[in-house]
């Protein structure tokens, strides 16, 4: 069923694996290098570069924008590479993640414990997805280039709930059917 939701992500109990979701609001991009750096910052007692509570991280590193564009191609990257760093962020209140592909069991357990949702965006549809990004600015780790943390304002960003806050996993469900 189609659901239209806004960030910050507050009512996630009504999101179920398999729902089509259109998100409007601010989300933050971070992929491999930014996760490593955030993790190291936390380990040395420093703050994260943005408020993570009730917010959504999009696993994405865009291609460069042309002069008349807000952002270049901007599709999801494989989420499981971020698994090592994710439970710590979930414990701090991260409530949504956007990526592609499966998650490890530690992440799913932490999602259930902390009430968080994992959304799948369509991999390899970066041109289409970029059209829903209305604002983009780098807010941290500028030296990482495409891997810097971007604050993005998205409108009706099309997603599917892949794993919900009860641990129901769309990838597993379909694997059982097939």
């Amino acid at each position: 069923m189609d659901k239209y939701i806004k960030t910050p992500l507050l009512n996630i109990n009504n999101l179920e694996a398999g729902d089509y979701v259109y998100i409007t609001g601010v989300i933050y991009s971070a992929r491999d290098a930014a996760h490593k750096r955030m993790y190291e910052a936390l380990m040395s007692g420093e703050d994260l570069p943005f408020s993570i509570k009730d917010n959504i991280i999009y696993y994405m590193g865009p291609s460069p924008a042309r002069k008349d564009q807000i952002i270049g191609s901007a599709g999801p990257t494989t989420a499981s590479r971020m698994d090592k760093y994710t439970p710590r962020l979930l414990d701090m209140g991260l409530s949504g993640m956007i990526g592609k592909g499966t998650r490890g069991s530690e992440v799913i357990e932490s999602m259930i414990k902390n009430k968080a949702v994992y959304f799948a965006a369509t991999g390899g549809a970066g041109a289409l997805l970029s059209k829903c990004i209305k604002e983009s600015k780098v807010i941290a780790y500028d030296d990482l280039g495409t891997e810097a943390i971007h604050e993005l304002y998205v409108e009706n960003f099309p997603l599917i709930v892949a794993i919900d806050s009860k641990g129901k996993n769309l990838y597993e469900l379909h694997a059982q059917i097939s």
Binding site: G72, S73, G75, G124, G126, A127, L128, P158
Partner: peptide, 21 residues
């Protein structure tokens, strides 16, 4: 269907098909 739309947008609006080039 999204992939087909994506291919059209990439070509017409000059955005790479995928951000992982």
């Amino acid at each position: 269907g999204q992939l087909l739309d994506n291919l059209d947008i990439a070509e017409n609006d000059l955005i790479p098909i995928c951000q992982d080039t």
